[in-house]
Amino acid sequence: MTSTTLPRSELAGLSAIEVGAGRPVLLLHGVGLQAEAWGAQIEMLSGGYHVIAPDMPGHGQSAGLSGQATLDDFVQAYIPVLKSLSEPALVVGHSMGAMIAFELAHRAAENVVGVVALNAIFKRSPEAAAAVQARANALDGITVPSPTPTLARWFDTSESPERRACDSWLRAVDPAAYKQAYTAFANGDGPKREALATLACPALFATGALEPNSTPAMSQAMAELAPFGRALIIEGAAHMMPMTHAPAVNDALLGLAQEVWP
């Protein structure tokens, strides 16, 4: 499914894949990707849930945001989507999408029954913060950056359908929108401790054991701070684990869905 472009509909100002029926599950992808990055999750969850996978603003078929958008601007773009649903949703985010998912759970708690943050950052080290800022500053917003360094961080060196799909999405994204989103991501440092401590819904913080940036220690620290938090570290996985380790991710999502909707 990663190589297939799925039909979209317009939903509260964003282009979105909508499939299935039942309780709503909202899937939020990361910078440079598009909704098809959730292909394995869409296929699994749509058998029993209403799955909504929007394209991030400026990605896929969604229009971009104006100006020098912040993470808050991206969060605000998704709130109408959340409020348009018939009932509170399970919100799942990956990478920057995980940052947005947590903010939705914090700011629009009445519309969220549970949250899953996959490969989420939390309190970057000074070295990691400097590195991501340098990558953001190197983007000119005019030319498409080579995806090679990004793919090297996300995958090992071997070729795979998942790597090729990400390569094609990174080459297709609008350079200005990519710079806008990546800068917002680079300027973020994950959820605030007080926000984690007051999170009222079940929360899963999951990452890969081989993830060098959204590290296992980060997921474990967030889970310890959240009253109903738990951590999952997937062995052998790195940044793109929703694609590369879909069975383990799918089992975790289904488990939380069955918990919030017994």
Rank of each mutant, 00 (worst) to 15 (best):
G48Y: 14
A69R: 15
A197I: 09
K179N: 04
L210D: 03
P145I: 07
R171N: 02
V132F: 00
Y178A: 09
S62Q: 01
T157N: 13
N111Y: 06
Y49I: 11
S219K: 11
A37C: 08
I234Y: 05
L90R: 00
W261D: 11
A89C: 09
K83D: 15
A128V: 01
D140K: 01
F185R: 01
H106P: 00
P7D: 14
P147T: 11
A217M: 05
A63T: 08
A98G: 04
L71C: 12
Q68F: 07
E127T: 09
R164L: 15
R164V: 11
S214W: 07
L45E: 13
P216A: 11
G22F: 12
L11D: 03
S95L: 06
A223G: 13
A257D: 12
A129P: 03
V25D: 02
L210M: 00
A134Y: 00
V112I: 10
V115L: 12
N137H: 09
R107F: 02
P145V: 07
L256H: 03
F205P: 07
S158T: 15
A195R: 10
L45K: 12
A195Q: 01
D251N: 04
A136L: 11
V92W: 10
A109P: 06
P149M: 06
I234H: 03
A120R: 06
A177R: 06
L118V: 03
A35L: 06
M99A: 05
E43G: 11
P126F: 03
H29G: 02
A63S: 13
F102D: 04
S125Q: 02
F205G: 08
L27G: 11
